[in-house]
Design a protein around this nucleic acid. Structure first.
Lengths: 350, 350
DNA sequence: ATCGTCAATACAAACGTTTGTATTTATCGC
DNA sequence: GCGATAAATACAAACGTTTGTATTGACGAT
């Protein structure tokens, strides 16, 4: 357990000044080639690594990028997050940066957490998702001039780079798909109001319902958990004799619908129809295979990483034109009623 | 975009020394109560936050704990990781620490990454999973005296705290369950050799097979991906006329088996049987519901966090007696062949 | 020989904290 | 009213870097 090797230590051993050592290691032309080689040789031999805290202090930059994990984070948290963390870390490490992760307990806590991250110098930039209306995190970051990238556009769509999944299209798509065999009431099951992606989904779904001449669908704004999906479907299946259709914004909710159906002795594709979202692992193997839309997780993670890096390289202020709306792709067709046709996979997901 | 507020700034405004400001903020009895209040009032008004880098440099501690995400990290990465990150961040922030995340591309890269984390002072402690035989990460950390906690025991079981899932029991359990209706060859599909949890699983499974007087099962050591599960099952389903049984160490592999079965027109529960692991989201809703074992993700995450904090509070060297082996719980019974009995959920998973 | 020039290196300050020690100021005993 | 004592505060060094500037010594030009 020897002492950590520092510039000072190298300097003492070589009987030169720390400044010379520092410059030698950075290939500064001001140091004599022989000195440089000597320093570098010893540094390599002792496996010298520059201290991150000291560098951060000097540079006024932490060298870290934060990812904000949005609550609630449970087993059913969107699979995109892990992919994002992994991809982002790869990209960051290539540019000498590291990844910091913060998980707020509640949505209200997030703004304060963001403030802490910035003002304590815990990170130089932030990646955040689940943008919302009047998002206090965004106004704070803009105000401070902090580089950040969001998953989902905000109320200041031209003030920062963002990447967005086309949830409006997803909503439209789900309703359109369910419409074909619609035999009963249509339920839109989305995340709480104010969350932008959910608002877009609902808007897209409602618009499509109107276009198709449907009566106004029943709207549910709940947390995206299997429990909530089960609760809602359980309630509906208990009271109606018709064949309800559920357009769920996320597969977690749809899984809940499956659970409620099983509990009620109802069969999906006969007594009810379901459409999910985000193509969770396992959704391919439900019975019938869950209709859902793909969100191209890897591409999103990759894009967010790239955009974050580009933003970090930019000067302090915008405009930042990097706005990308990613398409959603229809997967499978289990929403079709059994008596109409066989369940056929539209596209393999692996 | 005003300058960050520092101790110096507060000191100048109040015409006192920075040391006084520093002490006032930490409620040092050496500063006069009126001065203390004056300082704290201004600090609150200007929303002063101590700079993390400066503190880290002075303290010789980064104030961060690293979590190593083990490759491969894909959509099917174990759901435990997100839960772990979330829980750990909660606990850490309560003690003024933060969470850093590192994702190695390959297993070989991990040891070097760990070295970098420690020697550059990127973190003061590490949480790591997927321990293996002759794990170079562990020997390095022990050598450096770094506080760390592992998910899964190591070759140095008394030298550091760890938490372990009872994979030996899981293997035993899977084979025992599949045995009841075994009509063909038994396949053990586990993660690559050298990964401790997989080795325990295989050992437990083989031992149980021997106890039950079964012929030696066929062994597969592959990455835990749906693709690998599908590949293996596809191969087997193509060549055998019998009813193979697959004990998969993780649901991702089992999902692959389901996919291959669908592709081959085979029906799970009639033409083959499957047993999974870790109870992934969605595994409840396969048809038939996937038999698997639960790994109590939240409890694991909580335990790892607690143990890490306790370890950080301890003196530099052991012994560290915190060893916990968590049980695995059988969920569902879809491995039963259809003609024998109906598929009944043994226990709800939500 | 002397000065300027250049290369090579050393010195020093700074980033924002924390903390040991020195200094100032007020208070008390006598 | 004077020295001792304690309270309050200021000074200074340190953590490990980076980087601007000063110093040293050798050499060529005059």
């Amino acid at each position: 357990m020897q002492k950590r090797v520092s510039l000072k230590m190298l300097a003492e051993k070589l009987k030169v000044d720390v400044s010379t050592v520092s410059r030698a290691l950075r290939d500064d032309p001001r140091v004599k080639p022989e000195t440089r080689d000597m320093v570098q040789a010893l540094a390599r031999r002792l496996d010298y690594r520059p201290n991150a805290a000291a560098r951060a202090l000097k540079a006024g930059q932490s060298g870290r990028i934060a990812v904000l994990l949005s609550p609630p984070q449970q087993r059913f948290a969107s699979p995109i997050f892990l992919e994002l963390l992994s991809t982002l870390d790869q990209h960051l490490r290539e540019t000498g940066r590291n990844l910091a992760v913060f998980a707020a307990r509640t949505r209200d806590e997030e703004a304060e957490l963001v403030r802490q991250i910035i003002d304590e110098g815990l990170a130089d930039g932030i990646v955040l998702g689940r943008t919302r209306k009047n998002d206090p995190r965004i106004s704070f970051l803009l105000n401070r001039g902090v580089p950040f990238v969001t998953l989902g556009r905000t109320d200041w769509p031209n003030a920062h780079p963002w990447v967005e999944i086309d949830y409006s299209e997803a909503g439209r798509l789900a309703v359109r798909a369910l419409f074909d065999d619609l035999k009963g009431e249509l339920h839109i099951v989305a995340a709480p109001e104010g969350l932008n992606f959910a608002d877009y989904y609902v808007a897209g779904a409602l618009k499509e319902a109107a276009v198709l001449g449907l009566p106004k669908p029943r709207l549910w704004r709940v947390e995206m958990t299997e429990a909530e999906g089960a609760r809602i479907a359980g309630e509906i299946l208990g009271q109606t004799g018709s064949v309800p259709a559920f357009a769920c914004i996320q597969d977690s909710l749809a899984f809940g619908v499956f659970r409620a159906a099983t509990a009620a002795g109802a069969v999906v594709g006969r007594d009810l129809t379901v459409f999910g979202g985000q193509n969770f692992p396992g959704s391919e193997h439900t019975s019938p295979p869950l209709s859902t839309f793909s969100t191209e997780d890897h591409r999103i993670a990759d894009l967010l990483s790239q955009v974050m890096l580009r933003r970090l390289a930019q000067s302090a202020t915008g405009p930042f034109e990097t706005h990308t709306v990613l398409p959603t792709v229809l997967l499978r067709q289990s929403h079709k009623l059994a008596q109409n046709e066989a369940f056929i996979p539209v596209k393999q997901s692996g």
